[in-house]
């Protein structure tokens, strides 16, 4: 039957799209169908559900920390306003401005300025809150006991380590704190007294590498800290960094 044949053909295209077989034009055509036809969207989603379990065979790889920083930058999270909020009204301001000029409604410079001012005032106010500005980490030993907690204030470029139940440390050893970016080598934050709170200033290079895939660790080092720039003694505690 012709209709069955046609729908089989469509369905095969959707399967080919889900597998990734189509060339750029054919891919774009299916992507448009998915946007406009609920039936196409459902058929494509069904094929994706069928084939995606194959991805279970792929080994996980932790992405480097700068990837997350790049995503935040692209979405302008650190500017305080998510780009989804900020980009749309701005585009429409310019669209409207162009339209005004085009249809010649007497958009003098003054009128244009007023238009911008008026429309800018209707923009949502910048969100003052920075949801991820505070990050925390519980730095615990292998026995699960928290040795220290760390709080990172990105705005102030500060990290505060506070002892919880720190392990006893021999007097000829120092505890050194390390930031470990996912898949990267540890970066020294500094030496700190194990039993007292200590505030560190975080250099820009360190700040850039903080993120939900990074971790903190404490190692035992000679007095004055690791001579090599990398941990030389045993790691006695570690903890993932997460948004506070």
């Amino acid at each position: 039957m012709n209709s069955t044949f046609e729908s089989d053909k469509d369905n095969l295209r959707y399967a080919e799209y889900a597998l990734g077989l189509l060339d750029a034009d054919a891919r774009a055509a299916v992507a448009r169908e998915v946007e406009t036809s609920p039936e196409a969207a459902a058929a494509v989603a069904l094929w994706q559900r069928h084939v995606t379990p194959l991805a279970l065979e792929i080994t996980d790889i932790a992405p480097p920390a700068h990837v997350w920083a790049g995503i935040r930058r692209r979405l302008a999270f650190d500017a305080g306003t998510p780009s989804r909020e900020s980009s749309r009204p701005r585009t429409s301001v310019w669209d409207s401005l162009g339209l005004w000029r085009w249809i010649g409604v007497g958009a003098t410079a003054v009128a244009a300025c007023l238009l911008v001012i008026t429309m800018t005032r209707q923009l949502p106010p910048p969100v003052a809150m920075h949801p991820s500005v505070l990050m925390v980490s519980t730095i615990a030993g292998d026995n699960g006991v928290a040795g220290w907690t760390a709080t990172m204030d990105i705005d102030r470029s500060e990290l505060l380590v506070v002892p919880a139940s720190p392990a006893a440390v021999a007097s000829d050893r120092n505890t050194e704190l390390w930031l470990i970016p996912a898949g990267g080598a540890p970066i020294s934050v500094g030496v700190f007294p194990p039993g007292d709170p200590k505030r560190f200033h975080l250099a820009k290079a360190l700040l850039d590498r903080l993120g939900p895939t990074a971790a903190l660790a404490v190692s035992l080092e000679p007095v004055g800290g690791s001579p090599t720039g990398q941990p030389t003694g045993p790691v006695i505690a570690k903890g993932a960094i997460r948004a506070a």
């Binding site: 996980d60 790889i61 995503i71």
Partner: peptide, 14 residues
């Protein structure tokens, strides 16, 4: 952010 933390390694592998 939590979604990223939980899934980025899987997606990066892919």
């Amino acid at each position: 952010e939590e979604l990223y933390r939980r899934t980025s390694s899987r997606l990066f592998g892919v």
